[in-house]
Amino acid sequence: KVTYHVPNEEFARKLYKKAVDANLNVEIRVENGQFIIHIE
């Protein structure tokens, strides 16, 4: 399980798409202006 803290929405979207394309379980949320992405 990996967690990324991404300040940039564009990068967060790319990361999310890559994980989904790889059939990984992804959860994304915004906290204090940062995008928190959990990948399992």
Rank of each mutant, 00 (worst) to 15 (best):
E31Q: 07
V20P: 01
I37V: 11
I28F: 08
I28T: 00
R29I: 13
R29T: 10
G33W: 14
E31F: 06
V2Y: 10
Y16C: 12
N23G: 15
D21Y: 08
I28S: 00
F11W: 14
V30D: 02
H38N: 09
E9L: 10
F35I: 10
V6Y: 09
F35H: 01
A19F: 15
A19I: 11
E31N: 05
I39A: 01
E27T: 14
I39P: 00
I39K: 00
V30W: 12
A19H: 04
T3R: 07
H5Q: 09
E40I: 13
R29G: 02
I36F: 08
N8W: 13
A19W: 10
K14N: 08
I36E: 03
N32K: 04
Q34F: 13
H38P: 00
T3P: 05
E40P: 03
E40T: 13
R13A: 07
N25T: 12
E9A: 05
I37L: 06
Q34S: 11
E9H: 04
V6G: 13
V2W: 13
I36G: 01
Y4D: 08
Q34C: 15
D21M: 11
F11H: 08
E10Q: 05
V30C: 14
G33I: 09
L15K: 03
K14W: 14
I28C: 15
I37T: 00
V30I: 13
T3H: 12
H5W: 14
G33Q: 02
V2K: 12
K18E: 13
V6W: 08
L24A: 02
G33M: 03
R13Q: 07
L24Q: 01
T3Y: 07
Y16V: 10
I39N: 00
P7K: 14
K1N: 10
E10C: 15
I28R: 00
N32W: 12
E10P: 01
K18A: 14
E9N: 03
N8R: 01
Q34H: 11
K14I: 12
H5D: 04
K17D: 13
N8I: 08
V26M: 03
K18F: 13
R13N: 11
V6E: 05
A12Y: 06
I37M: 02
H38E: 15
P7R: 12
L24M: 06
I37W: 01
E10D: 11
A19L: 15
H38T: 15
N23V: 15
